[in-house]
């Protein structure tokens, strides 16, 4: 008996603003497609059952756990990953997103494995809100409450969310 080969599909995903085509087995997870087919290893896989949030990317503006999405489901979507958070400035240098800047300044990461998921979740959340409004503790709870970190105890992550929101308010 020969086990049948997976059916494959060719999909197009706009990743960090760049249209990317890939031919993937239909069962390929979006997380694996990003990491293995598109070489974007900044998105990490911590549990593969949607609990830890390390694999969070932003799909059409919403934070999504890429280990719970099939790559074929993202066909035609716009996906933002951690690699796309920083912008290039006119001099060819790199300008960190305020959330990235705040994470570094507040020591909001240690091993860094969960960090891309936090960055994407928090960025999507902060960008979806009115930046001029005062950030409440309840909002911070909501923004960081669904991702696991084993290193930091979360205190500095919460601090970074406040710092980032303040920076986005001042920059808005």
């Amino acid at each position: 008996m020969t086990v049948p080969v997976d059916t494959e599909r060719t999909i197009t995903i706009t990743v960090n603003g760049v249209p990317r085509r890939a031919t993937v087995p239909v069962r390929r997870l979006l997380s694996d497609a990003l990491r293995h087919d598109l070489g974007l290893t900044g998105t990490h896989v911590g549990c593969e059952h949607g609990v830890c949030g390390a694999c969070t990317v932003v799909v059409d503006g919403a934070a999504v756990r890429s280990c719970l999405v099939l790559a074929v489901q993202a066909d035609g979507a716009a996906v933002e990953t951690v690699e796309g958070l920083a912008r290039e400035d006119s001099g060819g240098g790199q300008v960190l997103h305020p959330v990235q800047e705040a994470f570094r300044e507040c020591h909001a990461l240690q091993c860094g494995f969960c960090t891309p998921g936090f960055l994407m979740t928090i960025t999507a959340g902060l960008e979806a809100r009115d930046p001029s409004a005062e950030l409440t503790e309840e909002e911070v709870d909501e923004l960081v409450g669904g991702n696991l970190c084993r290193c930091t105890g979360y205190a500095n992550i919460r601090k970074a969310v406040h710092d980032a929101a303040a920076a986005m308010r001042d920059g808005a």
Binding site: L40, T41, G42, T43, T81, V82, E83, L85, A86, Q94, L96, Q100, F103, R104, L109, G112, F113, T115, P116, L119
Partner: peptide
């Protein structure tokens, strides 16, 4: 942190 917050770890 420079590499870890930009996905270059």
């Amino acid at each position: 942190d420079a590499r870890l917050i930009t996905g270059r770890g």
